[in-house]
């Protein structure tokens, strides 16, 4: 009886599988301040590349002073080490600048389920200077009012719902 063995993977296929594994591992890292969102949901994870010696990951800051960036870089190293990538380089890239429009639909849904009103798409400057309409993440009512423009983290403001009377956080448009 002969045993047929599958041929060894070609170098290109092996490299592609490694890249997929690295991307998958990097995409599991969550925002330490909003642990239901991965950095992929947020749009903070920009690129994962395989070099000869190491994996390179590009991330971009949300707000200039976002204190979570150092933590995210550390978590990336841990997640990639667990997936078998010992050498990791995390680059912080500034351009193009992150905007809340990069947040995925999946991310917006998770944010709402978590009790945080997601940012409106394409709101940009209109939201900054016009009348901002924010729907309550609990009951969906748009009869809401801002309590404080600067909330528990740089990316959030504090609101209350006049319909269900609950206070809630809203992710600021940026």
């Amino acid at each position: 009886m002969t045993v047929r063995r599958s041929p060894p993977p070609t170098p290109a296929a092996a490299s592609s599988a490694r890249l997929t594994a690295a991307r998958r591992a990097a995409a599991t890292v969550v925002d330490p301040e909003i642990p239901v969102l991965t950095i992929a949901d947020l749009g903070v994870l920009r690129d994962v590349r395989l070099g000869d010696e190491r994996v390179e990951v590009d991330i971009t800051p949300t707000y200039s002073g976002c204190p979570a960036m150092n933590m995210i870089a550390l978590e990336l190293e841990v997640a990639l080490a667990r997936a078998g990538f010992a050498a990791v380089k995390v680059n912080t890239i500034l351009a193009p600048a992150w905007t809340t429009d990069w947040m995925s639909e999946e991310g917006r849904r998770k944010l709402r389920d978590y009790g945080i009103a997601p940012p409106r798409r394409g709101a940009g400057r209109r939201a900054l200077f016009g009348v901002e309409e924010v729907a309550c993440p609990r009951c969906g009512s748009e009869d809401t009012a801002e309590i404080a423009a600067f909330g528990s983290t740089s990316c959030k403001s504090l609101w209350r719902c006049r319909a269900c009377r609950e206070p809630f956080d809203a992710f600021k448009c940026h």
Binding site: Y63, S64, G65, P67
Partner: peptide, 8 residues
């Protein structure tokens, strides 16, 4: 914090 981030 915004300003500190810009400075960095």
């Amino acid at each position: 914090l915004d300003l500190l981030g810009q400075a960095r």
